[in-house]
Simulated scan of single mutants.
Amino acid sequence: MEIQQQLIRDLEGKIALVTGGTKGIGKAVTARLSQAGATVIVTARNKPDEHNKPYHFIAADLAKREDVEKVAAEISERYGGVDILINNMGANTFPGGGFSTLADEHWYQALEINLLSSVRLDRALLPKMLERKSGVIIHISSTSGQYPIWESTMAYSAAKAALTSYSKSLADEAGPYGVRVLTVSPGLNKTEAMSDFLGQLAAKEGITFDEMTQKLFDRVGGVPLGRMAEPEETAELIYFLASPKASYISGANYFIDGGNFPVVK
Score class of each variant (00 low, 15 high):
Gln5Arg: 15
Gln6Trp: 12
Arg9Asn: 06
Asp10Val: 02
Lys14Gly: 09
Ile15Tyr: 08
Ala16Lys: 10
Gly24Arg: 05
Thr30Ala: 02
Thr30Cys: 10
Thr30Val: 10
Ala31Met: 09
Ala31Tyr: 03
Arg32Ala: 13
Ala36Met: 11
Ala36Val: 10
Gly37His: 13
Thr39Ser: 15
Thr43Asn: 12
Ala44Glu: 02
Glu50Pro: 01
Glu50Tyr: 01
Asn52Glu: 15
Ile58Asn: 07
Asp61Leu: 13
Leu62Pro: 12
Lys64Phe: 01
Arg65Met: 09
Val68Lys: 09
Glu69Gly: 00
Lys70Thr: 04
Val71Tyr: 13
Glu74Ser: 09
Ile75Arg: 02
Ile75Met: 03
Arg78Pro: 00
Tyr79Gln: 05
Tyr79Asp: 11
Gly81Thr: 03
Val82Phe: 01
Asp83Glu: 08
Leu85His: 06
Ile86Asp: 07
Ile86Tyr: 02
Gly90Met: 10
Asn92Arg: 08
Thr93His: 05
Pro95Asn: 06
Gly96Pro: 03
Gly96Glu: 01
Gly98Phe: 04
Phe99Val: 15
Thr101Leu: 10
Leu102Phe: 05
Ala103His: 09
Glu105Ile: 06
Leu111Trp: 07
Ile113Asp: 04
Leu116Trp: 06
Ser117Asn: 04
Ser118Gly: 13
Val119Lys: 02
Asp122Glu: 14
Arg123Gln: 14
Leu126Met: 07
Leu126Trp: 03
Lys128Ala: 14
Glu131Gln: 13
Lys133Pro: 09
Lys133Asp: 05
Ser134Trp: 01
Val136His: 11
Val136Asp: 12
Val136Glu: 09
Val136Thr: 15
Ile137Leu: 09
Ile138Gln: 02
Ile140Met: 07
Thr143Arg: 01
Gly145Ile: 04
Tyr147Phe: 13
Glu151Ala: 14
Met154Ile: 09
Met154Phe: 05
Tyr156Gly: 01
Tyr156Met: 03
Ala159Thr: 06
Ala159Gln: 06
Thr164Lys: 07
Tyr166Asp: 01
Tyr166Lys: 00
Tyr166Gln: 00
Ser167Cys: 04
Lys168Val: 12
Ala171Thr: 07
Asp172Ile: 12
Asp172Phe: 00
Glu173Gln: 11
Tyr177Lys: 14
Val181Gln: 09
Pro186Gly: 04
Lys190Pro: 00
Glu192Asp: 14
Ala193Ser: 15
Ser195Leu: 04
Asp196Thr: 15
Leu201Tyr: 07
Ala203Asp: 08
Thr208Gln: 13
Phe209His: 15
Lys215Arg: 15
Phe217Gln: 12
Asp218Lys: 12
Arg219Trp: 05
Val220Gly: 07
Gly221Val: 07
Gly222Tyr: 03
Pro224Asn: 13
Leu225Asn: 09
Met228Ala: 11
Ala229Leu: 10
Pro231Lys: 08
Ala235Pro: 04
Ala235Tyr: 06
Ile238Ser: 13
Tyr239Gly: 06
Tyr239Trp: 15
Ala242Asn: 05
Ala242Cys: 14
Ser243Leu: 04
Lys245Cys: 02
Ala246Ser: 11
Ile249His: 01
Ile249Gly: 04
Tyr254Ala: 02
Asp257Phe: 02
Gly259Met: 04
Phe261Gln: 12
Lys265Leu: 14
